[in-house]
């Protein structure tokens, strides 16, 4: 009986392992995510809503070299049904000089993009719905950090100072890659944070 139970357990593990291998192999490679990230809007306009006051925030950037040779990826498998998994990915790409963040007339150098993303398409199909995004890209357009070390300071707390490295950035989320629409935008400006609203006037 013990042998039978062991055999069933081993067979089920092998079956899961096979299914897991099939699904992981069918999932996109790092280049897919790099290509997706390169579609992030290279310019945009937002406003900081304050009653009775006008504000304007625009940005523009050109991609330069990526910091990592390829997009970093990590999968968390469902422990009860390992064929399903949840994929995260991260990337950093430097910007060319001349890229900027313009906040009410103050022009700051935009230096790099950091993306923390998730690809939900390989999780349990029962959970998927058109009300849940297939992708979520958390986009940071970072100002003033030409080496793009962040969001957490390397080696912190041993390296001292604040835990986070970036004092100023524009943050938004992309939940539909169709037109890479920025949502839930925020500005961190010298450590203060504000919610922003997208301004879409169409192309000039």
């Amino acid at each position: 009986m013990k042998f039978l139970a062991l055999a069933v357990l081993l067979c089920s593990q092998m079956l899961f392992a096979n299914q897991k291998a099939i699904l992981v192999n069918a999932s996109p490679n790092a280049q897919f995510y790099r290509d997706l990230i390169l579609k992030v809007r290279q310019s945009g306009e937002f406003t900081l809503p304050i009653p009775g006051a006008q504000s304007s925030l625009t940005y523009s950037f050109d991609f330069d070299q990526p910091v990592f040779p390829e997009t970093l990826m990590g999968d968390i498998h469902d422990s009860f049904n390992p064929i399903y998994f949840f994929r995260s990915f991260w990337d950093k790409i430097l910007f060319k000089d001349g890229s900027y963040l313009l906040i009410n007339g103050e022009k700051l150098p935009l230096t790099c993009l950091f993306v923390s993303g998730q690809d939900n398409r390989f999780s349990d199909k029962k959970l998927l719905s058109p009300l849940l995004p297939e992708f979520v890209l958390k986009v940071y357009l970072v100002a003033n950090d030409f080496s793009c070390q962040g969001p957490v300071k390397p080696g912190w707390p041993a390296t001292g100072g604040r835990e986070e490295n970036w004092d100023t950035y524009l943050y938004y989320e992309i939940k539909d890659p169709t037109i890479m629409l920025p949502m839930d935008a925020k500005l961190r400006y010298r450590w203060n944070e504000y919610s922003l609203v997208l301004v879409d006037r169409g192309s000039k």
């Binding site: 009860f80 399903y84 939900n120 009300l131």
Partner: peptide, 18 residues
């Protein structure tokens, strides 16, 4: 499954902002 639920659900609640 619980892990994946835990990770996905925050986006269910943050998707509508008005």
């Amino acid at each position: 499954m619980k892990i994946i639920n835990f990770i996905l659900f925050p986006f269910l609640f943050s998707i509508s902002t008005f």
